[in-house]
Amino acid sequence: MKISPEEVAHVAQLARLRLSPDQTAKLTGELNDILTHMDKLNQLDTSGVASTNHALESSGPMREDQARPSLERDQALANAPARDDQSFIVPRVL
């Protein structure tokens, strides 16, 4: 088995997901099927091969650091589930 139900529960915690026992069991089976398929990659010797993490080589374009118009505060807050005039409101943290 590539991944145990305990590991699935741990990964869910990392991903900020709450899984029911049924969901954990089902995902354990599915993730094992998928990860078994990934084993194929170990057939390849990739020592010395550089990793590709971007689709195209990019020069990392630069621009002048100039102030430009951006969203008004009201627009930025318009979709907030809870807000006041100037902030997003979240459950008490401290």
Partner: peptide
């Protein structure tokens, strides 16, 4: 890491 290398291939 491995997937990124095979992506290069």
């Amino acid at each position: 890491g491995k997937a990124g290398q095979v992506r290069t291939l």
